[in-house]
Every structure is written in C-alpha cells, then in structure tokens.
Design a protein around this nucleic acid. Sequence first.
DNA 1: GAATAGATTGTCT
DNA 2: GACAATCTATTCT
Length: 209
Amino acid sequence: MSRLPPAFFEQPVLALARALVGTTLVHVVDGVATGGRIVETEAYRGPEDLAAHSANGRRTARTEAMFGPPGHAYMFLLYGSSWAFNIVAGPRDAPHAVLVRAIEPTIGLDVMHARRVRSSARIAQGARDLTNGPGKLTMALGLDRSAYGLSCASDRLHLLAKSAGASGIAGARIGRSPRINIDYAGAWIDRPWRFYERGNPWVSVKPRD
DNA sequence: GAATAGATTGTCT
DNA sequence: GACAATCTATTCT
C-alpha cells in the first residue's frame, strides 16, 4: 500500500473530509504500528463556521495548529479525558481541519485492545466500540498531546491509499449528515459536513441512511 | 437498542 | 469558575 504524499492534504476541507473516508490511518509507537480505515470524518471550516474552534478567527495556543500548514495534526482535549485527532486542510493559512470520528481497526488489533482496556473500558475482542468514536480511536492508536502539530506524512504518523473495507463491504457509498454534538453552532448545526461510509458498523452515531 | 447521568481537566473568560 | 467536536455504566423498553 502506498503512503499519501503531503500534497494530498492541500485540498479544500470538504473535499479532504470526503477523500479521507476509506484511507488507512497509521500511528507508530516504539516501532509498533496500529491503524485502521477511516470510516467517518467531519469538516470544520473556520473562521466563519461557528462549530470550529477557529470560529471568528480565534487563534490561541490551543488552536494554533489549525492555522498552520495542511497535513499536520491538530489534537485537542475533550471533556477532560478524551483526545480528538484532526488533520489540517488547505488552503494554506486557512484555519480548516478534518476531525476523524471513527476507524475500522485493521493493524495491531491486540495492541489497540490493550490500550483501550487499560484506560478503563471493558470491551470484548473485536467489539465495535473499540474505535467507533473520536476519543476511542485516539486511545486505541496511542494518540495524545504528543502528536500535536505532527506531520501526517511522516514515519510515525501517515495515511495509506484508499482500500476496500476488511469488514467486507465492497463498493460502499459515502453518506453525508449534519455534524455531531455542536448544539452551540447556531445556523451551522445543520450543515451536512459529516462524511461516513454507508453501512459500516464502525461508524459512531447511527445516521439516517 | 435508546435514553440518562456522572466523570474529568486543559483552556479561556 | 465555566465550559467542552466525549465516554462509560446504568436503567429502562
């Protein structure tokens, strides 16, 4: 499988969010790789998008990565205990990013399961809730604050070209829906900026197909 | 399967 | 001091 080059991430945020569905995210820790196919993403397009952390051009130490070059990781902490992983999109200098909400685990299943159990969840081997949520997949992959600003085209963190789902859903279509849990975003709540693989069991919140 | 409540901490006002 | 792009366990149908 081929690695996606840095130029891949220079596309507009909505196009990138859609293009990422079906690619494989890989994170290497101490020489051990874990990863999975991305099956659900959301686009955040500041400064006008009120759901984005960069809304109204808010630029702080926390959001700095969103203003940085495309293809780098923007990590943030949610509700005190969950990290979320985002990839900064183009164009350069625009504070746009794609949140990865769910993956279908394919690489290093044992390691991912061990990480999830260690952080208190009790889940069965092969259960859907291993990586079907933004905080869950970062726990499983070992992603946290230390990945902030990292390039997504590096040895430690990279993406592999689109592939068919291991769960046997051939030629799956990509669906769209409004984003999840952004009740504060006013008129932007209903924008269909969430992309997911139809019928894939690892998608986090059940969409209205 | 769906709805609900409690946990928990860096960041910003 | 309040909040947040969530997770987990519990309590129901």
